[in-house]
Design a protein around this nucleic acid. Structure first.
Lengths: 337, 337
DNA sequence: ACGAGAAATGTGACCGTACACATGATCGTC
DNA sequence: GACGATCATGTGTACGGTCACATTTCTCGT
């Protein structure tokens, strides 16, 4: 006849056992100033003893603060976004926030709004978007979201709410490196065009090409995968009207090098290849990949700082873009005459 | 003199505007059966019009169901865990659940209990642990967590709550492949020993070696990174008392091959290398890597299914382990005589 | 036309917390 | 030793839903 489900202790249970009012317990929980140390101690003892845990739902209900930030990611397991996500979680944890992640399903537009709705209905206090795809921003705009929001997006420098490594500068760095080596026929293997980063890298590439008064073939639009790079590489070897390729990420660069090797071409002897991201494996590819390093961890960390500042109403504006860095390894060399 | 902060509409606002009681609105929200279609429609119209969103905190408070599952991950951005995580999110979404992720900080034990506390205080309904480290399970045991919990852990087959690709079988597959090629001196580069998977792979390796009546050197304990594999490779080339290496993941295998190449050794001519995981890049390494494929997505999906079944009190026990598969590429060959 | 039973809808209480405010205890001061 | 100021603690209420139960409205057979 015992009660099947014992109710978890609540604030009043604690109060009763400690011989104080529930409000006093609440004060202890929220580190209120005016609490006699002895009673505080007594209350904490009881809390420990009965294993009391404040109910966040109740707390969220009354304060309308969930202490949760929402993160919207793309469904793909890329190194960059993943690394940033971890940094975000770390930073959020340190600030006492929890992170609710939600990834975009493969499908289209409704999926995004659906995800955003879901996140909002959980009363997240702010949003970090690390799936910088154009359609995501369309969805955000359409939903008229009033939440503080930070996006990892390099194209809107004026916007207070975005933060990123300067992708354009990075792409220029990579391209300039090739040009300085003497390459004149450079192909760009870009990322999916609805990715804002992909577009920025492509723009940086084209800008640099223009500034050097060079022509180029229209960039090839890829999907970030090594497989795709491999396929593109297999196509490219037929024409051979280029001496270097700038790939929009390291994985595609890897696939390219694979295809070139299959075709009997030497990298960098016959073709130079540059990647982007500097994932930890890039140094161990064959040949070790020249690439553009960006600090995904720093990005993640800062995005949370920015978001929290906005939540507090501060204007932390630590907005200087983070600069990418060119890492020269062995996949690039002057073109063979 | 207008109100600064307009309160979000609540269920009673909707009820008033629709000319019904709040309970009727509640019924509409929960798809109750006995609701006249016409009133349902009217209510939905009002909801749409005023942009009403049910407050999950309030709902969670009264039902003590948060519709959230918590995921505990390691802080490292490895391909496998990340892929599983995405699958978990997908599956959770489909079931109407949200996922709260929390990653383990680098630090030690308190960090884990702290994270678990945090997750629990958010009233997650269940837990998925994809950071299968021994200390995590210690923490879980110590905290005496009563939540439904699923772990991606291969060592406790009897336990109802774990689910995994059979790591031991995978390691045996890889090892047997080398043995069948004629290798007798095989080195194992293992993962960190507090990782349950690493330990399982090592056990599989040793079991297979024993069954073949071979001796082996004590496995080298690594940290999963390509950098580490590279360092180990640089050491190994001094002794040369082996003809093959089985690395506990693909990244370390990559580093190894890099070091071997640096030393002028041919893979697979002089040394065969096998990896584990079959990450998407493995096929494009040089040489393309022979490895053991495991379906991280399937694992993630199933873990959610298992968890939800447990939440519903069903006994879905779909427990057959998922079998890994050996993918033979070009990094393995018979030993040179 | 009437009443029974089902269908549709309404009412009161409660979930666990924080906030505003009220009250009681303590203390230095003249 | 009475007094206001300050510190410590207690009381009422609201947050936005759901649940159990009460009530009204509809449907249909006799």
């Amino acid at each position: 006849m015992e009660p099947e489900k014992v109710r978890a202790p609540n604030i009043r249970d604690v109060a009763r056992l400690a011989g104080v009012s529930y409000q006093t317990v609440s004060r202890v929980l929220n580190n209120s100033e005016s609490i006699k140390p002895s009673t505080k101690e007594r209350v904490l003892e009881v809390i420990e003893q009965v294993g009391y845990r404040p109910n966040q739902a109740a707390r969220a209900l009354v304060t309308s603060r969930s202490r949760t930030i929402g993160v919207l990611t793309s469904q793909t397991a890329h190194y960059g976004p993943t690394t940033s996500l971890h940094a975000i979680e770390d930073a959020a944890r340190e600030a006492g926030y929890l992170v609710s992640t939600t990834s975009l399903a493969t499908s289209g537009y409704e999926s995004i709004t659906d995800r955003l709705e879901h996140l909002i209905s959980q009363a997240v206090e702010g949003l970090v978007v690390i799936a910088p795809q154009v359609k995501v921003f369309d969805a955000i705009r359409e939903l008229d979201i009033r939440l503080p929001l930070v996006t990892l997006d390099s194209t809107r420098r004026d916007d207070q709410r975005s933060l990123s490594v300067d992708q354009i500068a990075g792409a220029r760095l990579a391209t300039r490196h090739l040009i300085e080596l003497g390459h004149r026929e450079i192909v760009h293997l870009a990322g999916p065009q609805d990715w804002i980063e992909a577009e920025a890298r492509m723009r940086g590439f084209l800008d640099e090409i223009n500034d050097a008064d060079l022509g180029t073939h229209p960039p090839i639009l890829g999907d970030w995968t090594a497989d795709f790079g491999y396929h593109v590489g297999n196509e490219l070897v037929h024409s051979r009207n280029f001496t270097a390729v700038f790939a929009a990420n390291d994985q595609m660069a890897l696939g390219l090098m694979h295809a070139f090797r299959d075709a009997g071409l030497d990298v960098p002897g016959d073709v130079s290849v540059v990647g982007f991201d500097d994932i930890p494996e890039a140094a161990h590819y064959w040949p070790p990949l020249t690439t553009v390093r960006q600090d995904f961890t720093e990005i993640g960390r800062r995005s949370v700082a920015l978001l929290l500042a906005e939540l507090r109403g501060e204007a932390d504006r630590n907005h200087d873009q983070i600069l990418p860095e060119l890492i020269i390894r062995e996949s690039t060399a002057p073109p063979r005459r």
